[in-house]
Nucleic acid binder design. Structure first.
Lengths: 131, 131
DNA sequence: ATTGACGTTTACGTTAACGTAAACTTGTGG
DNA sequence: CCACAAGTTTACGTTAACGTAAACGTCAAT
């Protein structure tokens, strides 16, 4: 038997509220099984939730996150489907790549700036020591 | 004389509306000079705008973007100020670094998945050719 | 049998980040 | 002089992503 999770299990683990998880379900991002009314989350559901949250951290809307995540569950029956899937993957990858470049530049700029600050600090400390 | 820009100059250049730029001003992200009522944007204002937009692309709120950008204009008079500035820079850098890791993993996973798809495609094509 | 702890649906409320419209001012060319 | 393009303020509207509250079901433990 695979392990399953309750809604508050996942909420606790990921530091979000149950409401948020239900909202993601409303938006079609997760579709847990049910035992009567209760939602039962599988390991796969948990992975999808993690992907959604990472998408959000990276600045994607829920709709964008869904587009990306759904690619991982896309049908791959025939070569045509596989080819369009590969095309979409390529497009999304380009988006991620763009963010990566932005991020590299941002980090780099910040590092340079911090380095200048440290130089300036050393200079000031030398001056203070001279008094 | 340094070059200046009108609000629609910048809107055009960055593909946003004037309303958006004014909104950023309302939120304290940009503070252009005025000639009477008209806003006059300097090269520095333009840079700040670019930083705001990059921040947004990376998933920061306007408030978060402001916190980061304001560090680049922070006072550096005395050693105390410099030390707290360096501390804050370090904290923000950690945030960026976290995003970078997330992004690396996301790209890597997507690459692996695409590779598996391509393998599968090759296999299917071979089967088709055999008919 | 009742009291929590946990879950559910339904529905209105809130915040951020703008969109949109109205009414007005200010140079600039014909 | 007058239209027109570009800018301004003021203010209400909209969308996404949940928050919050009410009203109810269910099951294990006291």
């Amino acid at each position: 038997m695979e392990r399953t999770f309750s809604i508050s299990d996942l909420a606790r683990e990921f530091g979000i509220t149950s409401r948020t998880i239900r909202h993601y379900e409303d938006e079609g991002l997760i579709s847990p099984e049910r035992q009567g009314q209760r939602r039962i989350y599988s390991a796969r559901d948990r992975v999808r939730l993690a992907l959604v949250l990472r998408g959000k951290r990276l600045g994607f809307s829920l709709a964008e996150a869904k587009e990306i995540i759904d690619l991982y569950a896309a049908p791959q029956g025939e070569t045509g489907q596989l080819r369009t899937l590969l095309g979409k993957l390529d497009a999304k990858r380009a988006l991620l790549e763009e963010k990566r470049r932005d991020l590299e530049v941002a980090i780099d700029n910040m590092d340079r700036y911090a380095a200048r600050c440290r130089e300036r600090l050393v200079e000031l400390e030398a001056r203070e020591a001279a008094e």
